[in-house]
């Protein structure tokens, strides 16, 4: 063995080099084993839904399914829109103006999934509790959402999400 001055040998180099190559190899093989858990191609393919909103009368709300999750469609009353637009941004834990959350102010489209831990908030049917701000109330750990689906009180950190959607005709929306 040819010793260098510092006391390191060629053998040390071979040890380090082979351990590094081995670790790299393991890391490369690990990725397919992790990524297989992500959504498969057919799961990803099911990712858009169309819905005709003309049947949703003012004051009414319906729940549809998109990617296995509930989507809330609420035809808001004039009073609800007013409440949603008049609130001061400083009063909101996750400040966002109402107009950024809608395409048409009367038709609110939201992902019906509480941003805390994923329960479906109540407030879609007439008899449901709607929380202190007249929007939705999540019974799981007590989050209150306003008439724009913004978080006002409770453990949820952010507003109810707005799914990507657009009007593909006058009355039909395509989600996803």
């Amino acid at each position: 063995m040819a010793d260098t001055n510092e006391g390191t040998t060629r053998r040390d180099f071979i040890h380090v080099a082979s351990a590094t190559a081995g670790a790299l190899g393991v890391a490369c093989v690990a990725w397919p084993f992790i990524d297989q858990m992500n959504p498969a191609a057919d799961t990803l393919a099911l990712s858009s839904t169309e819905f005709d909103v003309s049947g949703v009368e003012e004051g009414m709300a319906v729940t549809i399914v998109w990617r296995g999750k509930p989507v809330f469609i609420r035809h808001r009353t004039q009073k609800e829109i007013q409440e949603a637009t008049e609130v001061k941004l400083d009063d909101l834990p996750d400040p966002q103006v109402d107009s950024d959350r809608t395409t048409r102010p009367e038709m609110l489209v939201l992902l019906g999934v509480c941003t805390h831990l994923g329960c479906v908030p109540l407030g879609q049917s007439a008899t449901d509790p709607k929380g202190e701000w007249g929007g939705w109330f999540c019974p799981c750990h007590g989050s209150h959402y306003d008439t724009s689906g913004r978080i006002r009180k409770g453990p949820a950190p952010t507003n109810l999400a707005v799914p990507p959607y657009k009007y593909i005709s006058d009355s039909v929306i395509k989600i996803g």
């Binding site: 858990m37 992500n38 959504p39 498969a40 799961t43 990712s47 296995g68 999750k69």
Partner: peptide, 17 residues
Amino acid sequence: VTLLWGGFSVDNPTLNR
């Protein structure tokens, strides 16, 4: 969370794993 679910919500892939 998506990795754990294998989809966009708790669903068949989740049950299988």
